[in-house]
Amino acid sequence: MTLYRSVGMYFYHLFVIARKDFLLEIRSKDVILPVFMFSFLVVVTFNFALEATPNTVNLIVPGILWVSMLFGSMVGFNRVFLSELELGAFQGLLTSPIGRDVIFLGKVLSNLMFLVVIEAILVPVLIILFNITLSPLDMICVSLPALLGLSLSGTLFAAISMNMRAKEVMLPILFLPAVVPIILGSVESTYLIMTEASLHESLKWIILMIIFDVVYCVVGAVGFTMIIED
């Protein structure tokens, strides 16, 4: 009963932090708007730069989608701690009786929420521009572990670089190599769900992403706690 209550409280605090970030995002539009604009422009630029034919469209669209999400999310991760730093609100979080890991995972949850919203707008844009067909259910199965991986590693590296003077440079240097397995998995599995009839073919890539999500989750929660304690 005690365990149930404490697990329940753990998730309650995660949602309290995510809810606060959502409220702040509605007011400030610090993250979703710039990330969407950036990702949208990348998609449009690729649309003009690459001559997609019926034979090549399945090869290039997965790359365009995940490259635009990757670079767009980087713009967002540079801004996720802005509101926390403004009036020392982050220190307020640190003095409250919740674990540092709860703060980290709460921020991960809110960043995941933002990325889901952006992809939910971006995918229909891709479908219209490149005239492709995608099963929504398959796309959700591929996108959730991919976006979770981006959110976990992006939040950790955003926290590491938030007090650095050159954070705009540091974040990509740390973030890009770390998410290579996620990008590889997401591009391959998106290609497979576009070309193969079933999700089964892309399952090994989805499992790979889930394994990396678990690793990022543990390393992220421990790493975040260590960074904050120092």
């Binding site: 309290v16 606060k20 403004e86 009036l87 020392g88 307020g92 003095t95």
Partner: peptide, 19 residues
């Protein structure tokens, strides 16, 4: 002050109370 500038007084206090 450990507060969020874009939230109201009530929202800031409620957030802290929930934590």
């Amino acid at each position: 002050p450990f507060l969020y500038s874009q939230l109201t007084v009530r929202e800031n206090l409620e957030f802290s109370a929930r934590l």
